[in-house]
Amino acid sequence: MTAAPGATTTWTTVCPLARIDVEGGVTALVGGRAVAVFRTHDDAVYALDNVDPFSRASVLARGIVGTRGDVPFVASPMLKQPFDLRTGVCLDDPEVRVASYAVRVVDGVVEVAAPEPGPGG
């Protein structure tokens, strides 16, 4: 995700990286949205919307984190659809996706960029 020229990114502090289990996830409220933050086996950190678009349940942070080839993904705990942690695209149905968010780790603390407001917001 890139910011528009002149735009300021608002970062929300989530937690220390050490509080997220390897191949696990946590949920945080970021800009009024439930966001799932994941840590992979190689300590990469990603953030997606927490709502599974297939079941409409807010559960992705409790999914199984793994890789398919070189693609890091989370499998929904409801119906097991895998979502690319980098883009939010469903690996089994590319027409379906969840929003992904910029993430950074500063001094061992995970921060997620707040979603940009939609039109009129």
Rank of each mutant, 00 (worst) to 15 (best):
E116F: 12
A18T: 09
D93N: 11
P117I: 10
R56S: 15
L29E: 13
V30Q: 02
A34Y: 00
P117C: 12
G108K: 07
T8D: 12
V30P: 00
I20G: 04
I64V: 15
T12D: 08
A47V: 02
T2H: 13
M78L: 13
I64W: 11
D49W: 00
V26Y: 01
V22G: 06
V37G: 02
T27K: 09
A113E: 14
A75L: 06
T8I: 15
V51I: 08
V105D: 10
V51C: 00
T87V: 05
V105R: 02
R62L: 15
E111C: 07
V35C: 00
D52I: 04
R19V: 14
L17W: 05
G121Q: 14
V35Q: 01
G6D: 10
M1D: 14
T10N: 14
Y46F: 07
A102K: 04
D92R: 04
R86C: 13
Y46K: 01
V109Q: 07
D49T: 03
V112E: 11
D42V: 06
G63R: 02
L85I: 09
G69H: 07
G88Y: 04
V105L: 10
G108W: 09
A7G: 08
R56E: 15
R68Q: 15
T12P: 02
D84Y: 00
V106M: 14
V74D: 04
Y101P: 01
V37T: 01
Q81P: 01
F83E: 07
G120L: 13
R39W: 04
V65A: 07
G63S: 08
V65C: 02
I20F: 05
V89T: 11
N50Q: 02
A47C: 00
V74A: 05
V110A: 05
T9A: 14
V59M: 07
S58G: 07
V59D: 06
S100D: 11
P94T: 07
T67G: 13
P94W: 06
P5C: 10
S100K: 03
V109A: 11
A61L: 06
G69L: 07
E111I: 11
P16T: 15
R39A: 03
T8L: 14
P5T: 09
D49R: 01
T9E: 14
T9Y: 09
P119R: 13
D52L: 00
D70A: 15
R68Y: 14
F73A: 06
D107A: 15
P5I: 12
A61D: 08
V59S: 07
V65H: 02
D84I: 05
V65L: 08
V71G: 05
K80L: 15
T27H: 06
E23W: 02
R104I: 11
P94L: 08
G6Q: 03
A57Y: 03
F54M: 03
V37Y: 00
P82I: 09
L17T: 01
S58D: 13
